[in-house]
């Protein structure tokens, strides 16, 4: 075990995968500038800077992926993905199917998002559900340095296009990462804390808020189970449903806004497949349907906080 930040974990994963597979290349806005050590180790052909043009970065990645390379592209911030939607959604996501399976698109798109840097809504927009709604893509959004590393390694090895969202608020929080080839499978949720009374389901920075809430609830005699989804697509339905079957109550928590968000999907899955076990309605705690403000206090308040989770859990438990 070593203690590193999520940002360092991203670089570690990339370096290890580039050593492992010569087809892995990295390019993006400042990739070679910030990754000058990677340029030294792997050469300028495999580590490249690009113009600030997300469409052609993503399109180039899709074209390269279809013809034998395994690109990892850095598009900096999630709102910038709007410039790359055609390439990620229409090309990388659909052309495998449309070609009758002749081509695959093993590429990883890294984008940062979420509160933490006071950069405002054109750099901070948790738009992960757009990609969950798009066929052919996988979507991950880790919460710990170990999962950043392990999921990025899995994403690079995956034969499908993976969108890797990095929560800005978590990038420089240190955490323990196992030594060696640490790989976390895509599509497997992590039960962060076991409990029997209520299930708190989350991903990215609000996982920590759920764990804080679970501590408070514990003091109040309530046993909360906390699940970190980690992968938003595919979603680990089995882990979710097993937990709700056990507790009969669920709260879904995320920083992204509510409408058609991951929480809506999770709530619907629980309602469809574990309705009989429910003792109370599934509750969503999400960011508001508003652009994220830059101002630090407003930005921090955008994501659901531990006290709101405790209050929602207490209300849920008050129903017989």
């Amino acid at each position: 075990m070593r203690t590193i930040t999520a940002d360092e974990a991203i670089t570690e994963a990339l370096v290890e995968e580039m050593r492992r597979d010569s087809r892995v290349i990295a390019f993006g806005e400042g990739t070679a500038t910030k990754g000058y050590k990677l340029v030294e180790e792997f050469g300028a052909a495999r580590v490249r800077n690009t113009p600030l043009a997300e469409g052609i970065i993503a399109g180039t990645a899709a074209g390269a992926a279809a013809t034998g390379l395994r690109p990892v592209i850095d598009l900096l911030f999630a709102p910038f993905l709007t410039f790359a939607m055609d390439e990620i959604v229409n090309s990388a996501g659909k052309l495998r199917f449309l070609s009758g399976g002749q081509f695959s698109f093993p590429l990883v798109t890294v984008a940062r998002t979420g509160g933490g840097w006071a950069v405002g809504a054109q750099h901070n927009h948790n738009n992960e559900s757009w990609f969950v709604s798009s066929p052919g893509l996988k979507v991950v959004m880790p919460s710990t340095p170990a999962d950043f590393k392990g999921l990025l390694k899995s994403a690079i090895r995956d034969e499908n296009p993976v969108v890797f969202f990095a929560d800005i608020g978590l990038l420089f929080v240190p955490g323990e990462v196992p030594d060696g080839d640490h790989v976390v499978p895509i599509g497997k949720a992590d039960v962060k804390r076991e409990g029997s009374d209520i299930t708190l389901i989350s991903y990215a920075k609000t996982v920590q808020k759920c764990l804080e809430a679970a501590n408070v609830l514990q003091e109040n005699g309530v046993s909360a189970e906390v699940i970190d989804l980690r992968s938003l697509k595919p979603l680990d339905e089995a882990t979710l449903l097993a937990s709700v079957q056990k507790t009969g109550r669920a709260i879904v928590v995320h920083e992204a806004a509510g409408p058609c968000g991951v929480g809506a999907e999770v709530a619907a899955i629980i309602a469809e497949k574990a309705f009989g076990a429910l003792k109370a309605p599934v509750v969503r705690l999400t960011g508001p349907d508003a652009p994220a403000a830059a101002s630090f206090p407003l930005e921090a308040a955008y994501a659901p906080q531990a006290d709101a989770i405790v209050a929602a859990a207490t209300r849920s438990l008050s129903r017989a």
């Binding site: 495999r46 399109g59 074209g63 013809t67 390439e87 229409n90």
Partner: peptide
């Protein structure tokens, strides 16, 4: 325009 977005990547694979 989609084909134009993909073309440099195919060229990149060939150039490497």
């Amino acid at each position: 325009g989609g084909e134009l977005s993909l073309a440099p990547g195919v060229g990149l694979s060939l150039s490497m």
